[in-house]
Amino acid sequence: MDARGLTMLAATSGLVAGAVWLSETLDRKPEVTESTAAAIRAELSFFVEFIEDPVEREALSDKPVPLCIGSSAPLDFDLLEDRLARSFLRPVPIIGCRRRTVEGDFGMFGAMTYWFDETGEEAGQLRIKAVNCPTVRRCIVDIDSVGAGMRYEVERTGDNWTVTGQETRWIV
């Protein structure tokens, strides 16, 4: 093979690699949001009941609880709200929230921070520290809350995302 043939082979390989990378990058946003929703459901399952029955859910849906969410990954908040609808959580980008820190003696904490949504209603708060999706069917989601940081392994089967593993990253 001559130099021209090698150049063409290298250029074609570069174009194919770039197209694959671009395709994977463009496809990541839905996976990031979907997997994050599954991880949030797992993170808050102790506190929040996810109601499957549509009639019962409709009767209780008039008062969603705001949840201020900060994220290092780009999240589609409309999609996130749809995926958390069964939980009565209303995700709010943290940029739309405000906080108030109270200094004092709270046991292990020297101060407590209270979060409020855009209307001034008290809200919960989570930080999505990282979302890494090595494939289109598997993501690792790191969530930090008040006293702990958790890592969730989330996998997609069909259209459903479920947590298949979790571990504590840090704890106070």
Rank of each mutant, 00 (worst) to 15 (best):
D2W: 00
A3R: 09
A3F: 08
R4V: 08
A11R: 03
T12M: 11
S13L: 14
V16Q: 06
A17F: 11
V20G: 01
R28N: 04
R28F: 00
P30G: 09
S35M: 02
S35V: 02
T36L: 02
T36F: 04
A38H: 03
A38F: 02
A38V: 05
A39F: 02
I40S: 00
E43S: 02
L44W: 03
L44C: 03
F46E: 09
V48C: 05
E49C: 00
F50E: 13
I51Q: 13
E56A: 15
E56H: 05
E56S: 12
R57M: 13
R57W: 14
R57A: 15
A59H: 09
S61G: 06
D62Y: 06
D62H: 10
D62F: 09
V65H: 06
L67E: 00
I69P: 00
S71Q: 02
S72N: 11
S72F: 03
S72D: 13
L75H: 03
F77N: 07
F77A: 06
R83Q: 14
A85T: 13
A85D: 13
S87H: 11
F88V: 03
V92G: 05
P93T: 14
I94K: 12
I95T: 15
I95N: 12
I95L: 13
R98P: 00
T101D: 01
D105R: 04
F109T: 06
F109P: 00
G110A: 10
A111S: 14
A111C: 01
M112Q: 08
T113N: 06
T119M: 03
Q125L: 04
R127C: 00
I128H: 04
K129A: 14
A130S: 14
N132S: 13
T135K: 13
T135I: 10
R137Y: 09
R137C: 00
I140F: 10
V141G: 02
I143P: 01
D144E: 11
D144Q: 07
G147N: 13
G149K: 14
M150V: 12
E155A: 15
N160S: 15
V163K: 13
G165S: 15
G165C: 13
Q166H: 11
R169T: 12
W170P: 04
W170K: 03
